[in-house]
């Protein structure tokens, strides 16, 4: 029996009917056509399908779409919103991606990490990203990118709004 759900996806309310067995990742990719979220292993190991459910990283291949009813979903499409987010910019500048397949998941885990801990050490970054696998093994640059994003976000937060324009 189908169930009606209403979720806020990247800030917009979405109401629809889903079959209970529909996985969140299929709902996001096939129903909402938000294909930035990738399916990697499909067995809860790789983290390519990571999205934020009420701000918390989850593997969307291991959550049912019906469980998103009444919740907030954030996918990689939302973190830039018109221009590159400092995390995206840092991944670009520090070569934090090679093939790019793990990148959306890596960035969402990084996003949640920096929201929780704005100044993480290298070890804390590695710990926080340990559920996301990069099969290009580009971890060095991914970690560098997250450190760089932390520094940039800290600097941006330290500059009062309007200060740059007024100087």
């Amino acid at each position: 029996m189908n169930r009606s759900i209403t979720a806020t996806v990247n800030g917009e309310k979405v109401s629809t009917e889903v079959e209970p067995r529909l996985l969140l990742v299929h709902f996001i990719r096939e129903r909402l056509r938000l294909t930035g979220t990738h399916i990697g292993c499909d067995t809860s190991h790789c983290g390519a399908c990571t999205v934020l459910l009420d701000g918390v990283p989850v593997k969307s291949c291991t959550v049912l779409a019906v469980q998103a009813d009444g919740r907030q979903l954030t996918t990689v499409e939302a973190i830039g919103a018109g221009q590159l987010h400092p995390i995206q910019k840092a991944f670009k500048e520090e070569h934090g991606l090679q093939c790019g397949f793990c990148t959306p998941g890596m960035m969402l885990s990084s996003f949640a990490l920096l929201a929780d801990n704005p100044d993480p050490t290298e070890e804390e970054i590695r710990w926080a990203l340990s559920g996301n696998i990069c099969r290009c093994t580009g971890y060095m640059n991914i970690v560098k990118a997250v450190r760089s994003a932390a520094v940039q976000m800290k600097q941006a937060a330290a500059v009062p709004a309007g200060a740059v324009a007024g100087s």
Binding site: G47, L129, G131
Partner: peptide
Amino acid sequence: VADPIIRNR
């Protein structure tokens, strides 16, 4: 236990 994303749920 498992990894940080699994531990979230």
